[in-house]
């Protein structure tokens, strides 16, 4: 119980009616100092707060560094994605050019293949031969001309890139000599 509450007590008597006597002079005094033993927790609190603040600053620094590191990483990955996208597009274009009909025909011609003039079919259900089979010959009425008749400047570019590599590091443009089937189907090679 403090002195203040004691002083106010008469006015808060049961019934709560004002007491009909001159207002007593009010005594406002500061709360007495806390006992000396209470000072120590405040110091601890200050230290804790300061420590916390320090921790927060350090954490923010660490987080900030991590974030910006992440940003660099994202940027690097985005660049990598873009570059890979470009490479993919280039390779797709190469595949499409190499798989163009005139190139496949030229490869086939170089392997000695010819176009068969007389189609015939073997029906498996009754072993019937449909059509008139005959050996494929190259004495057709219209001898097939050189496979380069239907032009493709992209193939020409591809060819020149292969015959005269401009840069030793360009690895996609490598032509191998013998075709080996040891590792599955060989990749198409243009000449």
């Amino acid at each position: 119980m403090s002195a203040t509450s004691t002083a106010l007590a008469p006015e808060l008597l049961p019934g709560g009616l004002p007491v009909d006597n001159p207002a007593p002079e009010r005594h406002i005094t500061a709360v007495p100092d806390a006992p000396g033993s209470r000072r120590r927790p405040r110091l601890t609190a200050t230290l804790t707060a300061l420590g916390g603040l320090g921790l927060i600053i350090v954490a923010q620094l660490v987080l900030g560094t991590a974030l910006s590191h992440g940003a660099y990483e994202i940027s690097a990955l985005q660049t990598q994605e873009r570059n890979l996208g470009w490479t993919l597009q280039d390779l797709n274009e190469d595949v499409q050019t190499i798989s163009s009909p005139q190139n496949i025909a030229r490869q086939a011609q170089e392997m000695g293949m010819i176009v068969d003039g007389s189609p015939a079919y073997l029906r498996l259900s009754d072993s019937a031969v449909l059509g008139v089979p005959g050996a494929a010959t190259d004495d057709a009425a219209v001898p097939f001309g050189d496979a380069g008749m239907v032009g493709n400047s992209l193939l020409d570019a591809e060819d020149s890139a292969k015959t005269a590599p401009v840069d030793g590091s360009s690895s996609t443009a490598t032509a191998s000599g013998d075709v080996s089937l040891d590792d599955g189907l060989p990749t198409p090679v243009t000449r």
Binding site: Q96, T97, S99, S100, P101, Q102, G151, N152, S153, L155
Partner: peptide
């Protein structure tokens, strides 16, 4: 613009 099949 590229035309992979050339003159085809």
């Amino acid at each position: 613009r590229v035309y992979p099949d050339g003159a085809v």
